[in-house]
Design a binder for these strands. Structure first.
Lengths: 253, 253
DNA sequence: TAGTGGTCTAGACCACTGA
DNA sequence: CAGTGGTCTAGACCACTAG
């Protein structure tokens, strides 16, 4: 990574810096390796720390770096592929679907959720929390909204463990006939509680996957799953997905 | 939006500010309305401009705001749903698939692409550029990599218009029998050329959709599509997808 | 040309981690 | 405790847009 000086070009410094660092990561660093600290790097490139940080932020967004307060900046492994839809449609909680039930409460959902579920705005629904772990690392947190109509028997508060209540709601869903589902993916930023669960700071970029489940001619459940955008690549369909990214660019022939 | 002062809490100022602004957007602003400029807002909230900008960046990431240099900051409309997969698998360029062919060149692809296509690292392939417009706004740019084996006849450089060459490659694809495809979605940042095409600055957050098309027992084409993350919600399956987001939060019952 | 957001600086202090 | 990244400040100048 040289003791480089940045040449002047009509391109923001932080963007040029990002490119230089990116190339250095490809050629001179190995996964897990710790980079010099920010003050050191800034000095080495002759820029203010804030500018250096702007470049690091980009690289973190792209999944190339991982930064942890009090520890340092390390080279991130390639993003892991996380299967989100296998083509066939199944209820959440079916067999083993990679999610771990956490707990379940009865509460009034946000207005937008109530609208999607076609419940009254002050109507409480089951809110099942689940989490997903991959490679020993938390990758996603989910809120599953289930109207009472879809799980009428799980209403009692007599379940001994929190997780057991969640499982009871999920079990009731399996009894309905799933007629269809649709999905949407968008960018979001982690709310404080999601951030804690995903081991990130509030505002960290996340991929929000919203899934609507249809049964009995209505929306029988709604899942809002929040994936770490820095470490995850969401895959759909067959197996695994492709890993396309960073690495020496294209050359004209 | 009051002439508010921020109370001191153990929460970053920019995060608290984000929340305050978000609520103000819900209750006191309409889509398209112009916010006061950054210096004005920073003064009003008693913070440095950089801090205010951190909050605005969050809100822009979440699709709540749109900022344009030389113009100002406006309240963004809800993200538009952009259909990415309808469940059935079809070749790119089939009938009308919402994409506009731009041009096509013959070049050596990035190493990662060559690997996915199982072509030699120095083997040129067709690189078809396409763009996608929705609601009169560019929403995505695509690079479609097609090995010569999948489109052997479009090799001639005799096509008069750039777009015609692209169409020729796509037409050849339709003749193959599509055996399957898989997809991955991940967060990225716009390269300089994509940024220009999407009317954003370099580094703007984008959703990268990578699709592999299988035919004749091999990977017959590879599409890397770059969607504006601030304005798009990618939808899969049936129709439209759900709009779940910001708006008055949940209340315990 | 006036006004906007975008970039950059050089500092300070804070919150967290690990030895 | 020393060292890391995270937050924040108060300024400056630049690039772009629109009248």
């Amino acid at each position: 990574m040289g003791t480089t000086q940045l040449e002047s070009v009509q391109e923001p410094k932080y963007w040029h810096l990002r490119t230089v660092l990116s190339e250095a990561l490809d050629s001179e660093f190995t996964v897990g390796e710790i980079l010099p600290n920010e003050r050191e790097l800034a000095a080495r490139f002759g820029v203010a720390r804030a500018t250096l940080r702007q470049a690091l932020e980009q690289l973190e967004l792209e999944g190339r770096l991982q930064r942890r307060r009090g520890v340092g900046t390390t080279v991130a492994p390639p993003r892991m592929g996380v299967a989100v839809g296998t083509g066939q449609q199944v209820w959440p909680g079916a067999d083993d679907d990679a999610w771990q039930p956490v707990d379940s409460t009865l509460a009034v959902p946000p207005a937008a959720v109530a609208t999607a579920l076609e419940t009254a705005r002050d109507q409480a629904v089951h809110i099942v929390r689940r989490s997903r772990v991959s490679d020993g690392q938390p990758v996603a947190a989910e809120l599953l909204y289930v109207p009472l109509a879809s799980a009428p028997e799980a209403t009692g508060s007599d379940a001994p463990l929190e997780a057991a209540r969640a499982r009871a709601v999920l079990a009731e869903l399996q009894r309905l006939e799933l007629q269809g589902q649709d999905r949407a993916v968008e960018l979001g930023s982690a709310r404080a509680d999601d951030a804690r669960e995903l081991d990130r700071l509030p505002g960290a970029p996340v991929l929000v996957v919203t899934t609507r489940f249809f049964a009995e001619g209505r929306t029988a459940a709604l899942s809002v799953a929040t994936y770490r955008a820095d470490t995850c690549r969401l895959t759909f369909g067959a197996a695994g997905g492709v890993e396309i990214h960073h690495g020496p660019g294209p050359q004209a022939s």
